[in-house]
């Protein structure tokens, strides 16, 4: 048996303050292709109130077919507006590991040990 742990990603939520202008968010995973690449394009973190109260914004992490993104690695990237500052307060990603993920390009397979039905 040889397989890696692959996780699916459902959505990402970011709490931030960006009163000067809009910032941006990108989300990178290593699947498909086994290299870290942005998977949802560039998402806009809209400008927040001038009184600097934080915003919470959520983006779905799905591919072009509406399926959850997948990866063994991931990272988010937040960029501030060119004309101002952005405060990043917190963030959360909703994930679940797939029990058995078999990639044919890597020669992976699933195999049990010899099992008795227990009688």
């Amino acid at each position: 048996m040889a397989f890696r742990k692959v996780a699916q990603f459902k959505e990402i939520s970011i709490e931030y303050i960006s009163p000067d202008a809009a910032g941006s968010l990108r989300f990178f995973t290593d699947l498909p292709g086994n290299h870290l690449a942005t998977r949802i394009g560039t998402k806009v973190l809209t400008a927040t109130n001038a009184d600097k109260t934080p915003n919470t914004i959520t983006f779905p992490l799905v591919d072009g077919n509406g399926a959850p993104l997948e990866g063994t690695l991931y990272y988010p990237r937040v960029d501030p507006p060119v004309t101002g500052a952005l405060q990043l307060r917190s963030g959360v990603v909703w994930v679940r590991p797939i029990g058995v993920y078999l990639d044919g390009t890597l020669g992976e397979f699933f195999e049990t040990l010899p099992i008795s039905i227990g009688v």
């Binding site: 990639d103 044919g104 992976e108 040990l113 008795s116 039905i117």
Partner: peptide, 27 residues
């Protein structure tokens, strides 16, 4: 058999996500 073993292999560049399996048996 007294024992059995199950093996699953994707073909080519395919991807298989396996969530569970069961076997119908009679002792």
């Amino acid at each position: 058999g007294h024992l059995y073993k199950l093996k699953i292999v994707p073909t080519g560049s395919g991807v298989i996500r396996l969530y569970g399996a069961r076997i119908w048996a009679r002792v």
